[in-house]
Design a protein around this nucleic acid. Structure first.
Length: 274
DNA sequence: CTCACCCTGTTA
DNA sequence: TAACAGGGTGAG
């Protein structure tokens, strides 16, 4: 479910709630969600330690501990991560619980069990999470038209598929790839080696612009976040094409179409996007 | 590169 | 009952 704007929102909500909190106990109920080191070792490592801050890289959420270790969470499709009072009703599919020193706990819930949690020890090389294979962040000045053209400009793959490749740009998912291409006026099916200089420029501009726009739209209070169990991202009223099949384009009125590209749904305006 | 697969739940 | 879901991977 969550893409960069949602993951950033989760991180912004959690950071003030977790920073300075000591982990009193930890429980992983589905060991397979911890690929490294293993569930028992992760719990043992974090218990008694204090959270000093949080970070985000692409769609990965990082919780930095006082011993220099980093707990990394990827929500994949249906993961939820939120801080709740001990008395807050526990949801089905709660796979990990970290008890904090303020009568609250950090809970990881994931209906489809695709989400993962890793712990990278201080000084340990991270060959596990995939963070090392990520491309630049969308707002990195290095993520520009020249970079995009040099990286995917010779691929015959659909440009939408290139945008979904996390090693090209980190954090773009299926919704925002469609939204980015709409604003850039480029059809999602276009082979990336067919883009003009002007199109690379529009794409490079649309990527950070759209992601920052939706990150701001997602802003939410901790109370509302908990109410929605970390799933209420509030982006849908602002989507121009994703999930809008059959509706008139907000720019030109032509009906939005849907197709499938590389197994993923793609939404676009046939008139505004060439 | 493309596809099946990892899972559960919702919708057509 | 089948298709689909905002993600990523490993196998071919």
């Amino acid at each position: 479910m969550p893409e960069l704007p949602e993951v950033e929102t989760v991180k912004r909500v959690l950071e003030p709630q977790l920073s300075g909190r000591k982990i009193l106990s930890a429980e992983i109920r589905r060991p397979q969600i911890v690929p490294h080191p293993d569930a028992a070792s992760l719990c043992e490592s974090v218990i008694g330690h204090t959270v000093v801050g949080m970070g985000r890289r692409g769609k990965f959420i990082e919780t930095i501990m006082d011993d220099g270790s980093v707990m990394v969470v990827h929500l994949r499709m249906t993961g939820q991560l939120y801080v709740a009072p001990l008395t807050f009703p526990e949801e089905k599919h709660t796979h990990a619980v970290f008890r904090l020193d303020d009568e609250k706990e950090l809970r990881f819930v994931d209906q489809r069990r695709f989400g993962r949690i890793w712990l990278i020890a201080h000084g340990e090389e991270d060959d596990f999470t995939g963070i090392g294979d990520l491309g630049p962040e969308p707002n990195d000045p290095a993520m520009n038209a020249e970079y995009l053209k040099a990286t995917v400009g010779r691929r015959s793959t659909a440009i939408k598929t290139c945008l979904l490749d996390q090693s090209v740009v980190a954090g773009i998912g299926n919704i925002y790839s469609d939204e980015i291409l709409f604003v850039a006026g480029i059809s999602p099916e276009r082979p990336s080696d067919s883009l003009s200089t002007g199109e690379w420029n529009r794409l490079a501009k649309a990527i950070p612009e759209r992601l920052e726009f939706f990150t701001e739209k997602n802003a939410i209070t901790a109370e509302d976040y908990l109410e929605g169990r970390g799933t209420d991202y509030r982006n849908t009223p602002f989507l121009n094409v994703y999930g809008c099949e059959g509706e008139p384009c907000r720019k030109c009125g032509r009906l939005i179409e849907r197709t499938v590209i590389n197994g993923r749904s793609a939404h676009f305006c046939p008139k505004c996007q060439k």
